[in-house]
Design a protein around this nucleic acid. Sequence first.
DNA 1: TGATTATATAAGTAAATCCGTATATATTTA
DNA 2: TAAATATATACGGATTTACTTATATAATCA
Lengths: 103, 103
Amino acid sequence: MEQINEMAENLKLLGDKTRLTMMALLKDRALCVCDIVELLETSQPNASQHLRKLKAAGLVNETRKGQWIYYSLNVEDKPYIQAIMGYLPSLKEKIDQIKNDCD
Amino acid sequence: MEQINEMAENLKLLGDKTRLTMMALLKDRALCVCDIVELLETSQPNASQHLRKLKAAGLVNETRKGQWIYYSLNVEDKPYIQAIMGYLPSLKEKIDQIKNDCD
DNA sequence: TGATTATATAAGTAAATCCGTATATATTTA
DNA sequence: TAAATATATACGGATTTACTTATATAATCA
């Protein structure tokens, strides 16, 4: 079943706490890498590597804005991913705490 | 976020094509290990080991019936797992093809 | 009871995965 | 143009994972 294999690949990507937290963060709004590094309290290369995987699977988009690269969700055409996202807690409050240097 | 970590653990379990196919099969009905081995075309130990992980996470139940141990879904109290299950294709036709020795 | 069938567990191996350190690339600013 | 900032990539090590083979346990049947 090719459909199941494809779903398994995507679920595997979400089955990592760093990446799943990234997705939860991006539910609120697009974020640049330095925001994500600060929010996740991880290293910049680690964040970049996880973001690359999410992007390779088409789960996020990237947009450069000057020095910064903003990542945003790209799940409109992926209904089961959207369904999962609906069950992720909102991290909006946490996001509002970060100091927004990026700009 | 403990809730996210717990979700990530469960999604990781579903993020494997063997286990996700098992879950899709069990959506139709309870199956014994030998059924699953036949349907997945894998080895018996491999099937048992994957089933053990699903059981440890509480995603399936087991019930012995004589010589056979039947596994069934246990997702009533796990809404996001149920949501994902709803997007898995039905493998009913495939299941109906197996020769039902078990009995 | 001994043989057979169903399932679980143990142990080993190859591959995948996550993360850290180091470095490269791209953009902005002085 | 040089320095600073933001991000990506390369590489290596430790851990995890999936699978195989071999063996153990449990239930049934002759």
